[in-house]
């Protein structure tokens, strides 16, 4: 699966789609592949404030837990209601139906630390070798 070019990526394998002051967050195809079958997602409640680069929740497979970090700072606006019963959406459609949460960005312009798709692919190639 190729990484969509309209998203921004983190070194900890999260993606964010920024639309105005809103952001939608998920984990990358690489991350879901590394974890394997995802069985549980722990997401913060709406209203929780998020800090860029800090843990905001976790994703679990049968034998591993991976923390999910907030790509940018802001507050949780909405959590994907489908994931509680269908965590497999994160495996099947990591950039679509497998989104984790939507957030209100505190500083929508500050995308400095994030990578674009090309940079992220280069980064993944490096960390896997």
């Amino acid at each position: 699966m190729s990484n969509p070019s309209d998203l921004k990526y983190t070194q900890t394998h999260e993606w964010i789609r920024v639309e105005g002051t809103k952001g939608t967050v998920g984990i990358t195809d690489f991350a879901q592949h590394e974890l394997g079958d995802i069985v549980f997602v722990e997401a913060p409640a709406p209203g929780t404030s998020l800090s860029a680069g800090s843990p905001m929740g976790s994703v679990e497979s049968v034998k591993a837990v991976s923390e999910v970090n907030a790509p940018l700072s802001g507050a949780v606006a909405e959590v994907n209601p489908e994931l509680a019963d269908h965590p497999e959406l994160m495996n099947q459609d990591p950039y679509g139906k497998g989104w984790i949460l939507k957030m209100t960005l505190s500083d929508p312009g500050a995308l400095g630390g994030l990578m674009d798709a090309a940079a992220y692919e280069k980064y993944v190639a490096e960390v896997t070798h």
């Binding site: 049968v62 034998k63 591993a64 837990v65």
Partner: peptide, 9 residues
């Protein structure tokens, strides 16, 4: 639910 346990977490 073994991810609760010491050998993983």
């Amino acid at each position: 639910l073994t991810t609760r346990e010491q050998h993983i977490r």
